[in-house]
Computed example of a mutant assay.
Amino acid sequence: MRLALVFCVTALPVVAQTDFGALTDAERLAFGTELRALLRAEPELVAAAVTPPNYAAEAYQEKAQADLDLIASLTRQVLAGTQIALFTGEDCTDCANALEEIKAISNTYDVTFKHHVMSDPASAALAEQLGMTDVPFYVMPDRILRGHMPDIVLRRYLTQ
């Protein structure tokens, strides 16, 4: 394959003078064969044309990375060596359900969790740093889940 590339490079002055619209059938077939071989060997040559950039995904990717960096910087305080943290508040029906479900998951699947109650100033400060105001919410090393998650969803995240 490299030999073909060398021939292409050495033939560059000739190619610059070639009228590709006037190739004979044999020349067109040979050129097509070489071009296909080159593209198979070096697919990155056309990757940008075949898969254009996804600008929306790139924009969210930066925000997602910033969120992951934030979680990483607060992991010690938020997770405290556990797999998941649950933030709850008082007088919150969803919070009571979330706490009971995570306790059941913890007992069944040997999953450790950290419970943060928003009436504790330290927990409230962590929630503020995370940009979370509504309880319940869950924090894992790679994500934040807003609102009460059904136990089947939590089990899937925690037992993968």
Rank of each mutant, 00 (worst) to 15 (best):
A49Y: 05
Y55R: 15
L79H: 09
L99F: 12
A96E: 13
A22I: 01
R156T: 04
D91A: 15
Y55H: 11
P136R: 02
V139W: 04
V135G: 03
C92P: 12
A122M: 08
A11T: 08
T112M: 10
P13V: 10
K103F: 06
D69E: 14
L86V: 08
D110P: 12
A49L: 13
A96C: 10
F7A: 12
P43E: 07
D151M: 08
T112S: 10
D142T: 05
Q129A: 06
C95T: 04
A85W: 01
L130C: 08
L99I: 10
A72L: 03
D91F: 15
N54R: 00
T88R: 07
V14C: 04
D134A: 15
P53C: 05
E34K: 00
I152G: 01
Q83W: 01
L154S: 02
V46C: 01
V78L: 05
A56R: 13
S123F: 01
P136Y: 09
I84E: 04
V139N: 03
G21P: 00
F20I: 08
K103C: 09
Q77I: 06
E90M: 08
A37H: 04
D19L: 00
Q17E: 14
A125R: 05
T108N: 14
F137Q: 00
A104Q: 15
T133Q: 15
M118F: 13
V46D: 00
R155G: 01
N107R: 14
F31E: 03
L145D: 02
E62W: 11
D120W: 07
A56G: 09
G89K: 14
A47C: 08
G89T: 10
V135Q: 04
P121A: 07
Y60G: 07
A122D: 02
A48F: 10
A48N: 12
F20H: 02
G81L: 11
M1L: 13
Q129S: 14
D19N: 12
T18N: 02
D25C: 07
A57E: 13
A37G: 05
S106K: 15
P136N: 13
A30N: 06
A16I: 00
L29R: 02
T108W: 09
N54H: 03
V78M: 04
I71H: 01
L5C: 12
I84W: 02
R28L: 05
D19W: 01
R156S: 11
P150T: 14
D69R: 07
A41G: 10
H148W: 08
L12M: 08
E101W: 10
A4R: 11
L79Y: 00
S106A: 15
M118G: 06
T75I: 01
P150E: 11
F7L: 15
T18K: 06
H148Y: 14
D110A: 15
A72Q: 11
H148I: 04
N97I: 11
T133L: 13
G131D: 12
Y55S: 09
R146I: 13
T10M: 12
I152R: 14
E42Y: 06
V15Y: 03
M1F: 11
L3H: 15
E128V: 10
A64S: 14
N97T: 13
D142Q: 11
S73N: 06
H148L: 08
M140R: 05
G81R: 09
A124W: 06
T18V: 07
V135P: 04
V9W: 05
A85R: 05
H115W: 09
A59H: 14
F87P: 02
I102S: 08
I71F: 00
L99W: 10
A26D: 05
R76Q: 14
P121L: 03
A56N: 10
